[in-house]
Design a protein around this nucleic acid. Structure first.
Length: 299
DNA sequence: CCCGGCGCCTGAGGGC
DNA sequence: TGCCCTCAGGCGCCGG
């Protein structure tokens, strides 16, 4: 499930590949994934690719934008000039390459949108469960959404440092406003902090040794300091490792991430606590989300 | 304010 | 093998 590090990884990949190209066509294979008019997009040039929270923006000429949210199972996979994908796969098998990567075979049953560029390269928007979307919006609409719907970005993805708005006083002030909310739900609230989802909330809370069940009013200043630091470190590490592939996530080249090898609690219920405290990782449901933590370490 | 539940979806995985 | 059921989860929305 693409969170900040996964969308950041896709963003970087696409920046290297699609900037300067002109969108020649959009094929709509899946219903209701494209919100907006194809004709507002076709013929426009790609000026930039950026990210806010878990949202990826492709900035186009003429003050137009494509906004993507990948939700659970979304993918954005770029392929340079495809003459005939199926033939290429057949060729690779004939050449004795046994590796079978189903992402090589595009479009597939999860493909909802296909963008074709002026050099015949393609961008495939896949989304198995169809929760994701692609919206066509003006610069002003994007600016308003980015301003109104998302809290501060926690990390400068280039330097790996915390961003200036993501401070302990900010977190404490938000907590004062919503004192009874549990810390996990606080962390994953996009209006409070941008880009944290289920995986990195669990991992950050483990790193800070704070129970996901704690009401935020009980979090001490020192704990806020630790938690803020943990969020920055975990997100930074996840970006370095090109994101977590749990089920569907792949980058803009269809490659898996590496962060799943460094997760300590997420989906590790039943296993011994990695801090060797003697406890076992537990899985509970919190706010309808699977939540993984060590009840012995996390207080 | 907080929480639970539903809806949106489909494939994986368990039970029988 | 096969069928049915549940579950997974980001996020908006609704009702208690």
């Amino acid at each position: 499930m693409p969170e900040l590090p996964e969308v950041e990884t896709i963003k970087r990949g696409l920046q290297d590949k699609i900037i300067g190209k002109v969108i020649q066509a959009i094929d709509v294979l899946g219903p209701r994934r494209l919100i907006g008019k194809r004709e507002d997009v076709v013929g426009r040039k790609i000026l930039a690719v950026d990210r806010r929270a878990k949202v990826l923006r492709v900035q186009l000429s003429g003050g137009t934008n494509l906004l993507f949210h990948l939700k659970m199972t979304g993918q954005l996979i770029y392929r340079p000039e495809i003459r005939n994908t199926k033939y290429e796969i057949r060729d690779s098998f004939a050449g004795g390459h046994p590796s079978h990567d189903w992402h090589a075979d595009l479009p597939n049953s999860a493909t909802r949108l296909v963008f074709t560029f002026d050099d015949k390269a393609k961008l495939f928007f896949n989304d198995l469960r169809m929760f994701g979307w692609c919206k066509v919006l003006t610069d002003e609409q994007v600016a308003k959404i980015f301003m109104d719907e998302y809290g501060p970005e926690p990390i400068d993805s280039d330097s790996g440092q915390a961003l200036p708005d993501f401070t302990v006083p900010y977190l404490a002030a938000q907590a004062k406003r919503l004192p009874r909310r549990k810390i996990k739900q606080f962390l994953t609230d996009q209006k409070i902090i941008a880009g944290i989802g289920n995986i990195y909330a669990d991992e950050s809370l483990f790193a800070a040794r704070i129970s996901p069940l704690r009401p935020v009013k009980e979090i001490s200043p020192l704990e806020w300091q630790n938690l803020r630091q943990s969020v920055v470190e975990i997100l930074g590490l996840a970006i370095k490792n090109r994101g977590t592939t749990d089920s569907d996530y792949v980058d803009s080249e269809g490659k898996k991430g590496g962060m799943q090898n460094f997760l300590k609690v997420y989906r590790r219920d039943g296993q011994p606590c990695p801090e060797n405290c003697g406890g076992l990782i537990e899985r509970i449901t919190l706010g309808g989300r699977g939540t993984h933590y060590c009840p012995a370490c996390q207080k």
